[in-house]
């Protein structure tokens, strides 16, 4: 059976990528809210925010990229929920295919769709004046962090996708993920925050990830932050994956 895993996953990936390309609105809406945040914070609030020297858009972009992924993964829960509801999930489950390929196809689709959305947001940021002198290695590091972050959030999205009772329930889980960056160093430096809020902001995962990406873009040494960021991402990935697989096994009997 496992010999078919790669072939089956590829076939199913092709299928759900068709879902994405035939409803491009899912990619566009994923990119629209983060771009709206960019515009709002750079042109409306940005003037009143003191985030240190340099362009505010440069400061803001890393957090916006994380918000993009957090919005995008809710579509994975949505697509998975629809598969279950339409009965096609059970059709796949009753066929002689590698069973986990059904989930992996959705996860890889999420990675590809989010990558497209991220590129759109990045292009918008470039139009708004974002510049980075980062070299190939730094860009690869940013891509790698975003990839692990996307995988972690996508496997989290699999759980509500498999268990939700309604479409709204399937995508509602991502709201807290979208708002987590607001209580982090994504929009304003944590030093300006009140004691307990600051303590939370400095110790939640988004701050370390945002700081790492910001330093990579600014060609500064990343220090220990990158390891904290990676530890959060990989840890979340492992926990989410195990949780998703346990849910899946219960669901698929």
């Amino acid at each position: 059976m496992s010999t078919h895993f790669a072939a089956d996953t590829t076939v199913l990936l092709g299928r759900s990528m068709r879902h994405v390309t035939r409803s491009l609105d899912t990619i566009i809406t994923t990119a629209v809210m983060p771009i709206a945040f960019l515009l709002l914070f750079v042109y409306v609030f940005g003037g009143a925010i003191s985030a240190g020297p340099g362009r505010y858009v440069d400061y803001l972009l890393p957090g916006i990229l994380l918000i993009t992924v957090a919005t995008g993964v809710s579509y994975t829960a949505f697509r998975l929920f629809l598969d279950l509801q339409s009965g096609i999930f059970e059709r796949f489950q009753s066929m002689p295919i590698a069973r986990s390929s059904v989930l992996w196809a959705h996860v890889l689709t999420s990675v590809l769709a989010n990558a497209i959305s991220l590129v759109l947001v990045l292009l918008a940021a470039l139009l708004m004046g974002f510049r980075s002198g980062a070299g190939v290695l730094a860009w690869l590091a940013v891509g790698g962090i975003l990839l692990v972050f996307t995988l972690a959030l996508t496997w989290m999205a699999v759980v509500p996708g498999l268990t939700a009772k309604s479409v709204d329930g399937a995508s509602a889980f991502s709201y807290p993920l979208v708002f987590l960056p607001f209580v982090s160093s994504a929009f304003v430096p944590t030093a300006s925050m009140l004691g307990p809020v600051r303590a939370f902001a400095e110790h939640q995962p988004v701050t370390s990830i945002v700081d790492t990406i910001r330093r990579l873009f600014a060609e500064q040494p990343v220090g220990g932050d990158i390891w904290v960021a990676l530890a959060w991402c990989v840890g979340a990935l492992v926990v989410a994956y195990l949780l998703a697989m346990a849910t899946y096994r219960r669901k698929a009997a």
């Binding site: 076939v11 199913l12 009965g87 059970e90 059709r91 066929m95």
Partner: peptide
Amino acid sequence: ISLTGQFAAVDEVLTGRENLVLVARLRH
């Protein structure tokens, strides 16, 4: 085996032919 459930378990986003090709490829 093959299972046809209570609700037509077809992929609405795909064409009819694509649905058949999908299953044919999954059945190798």
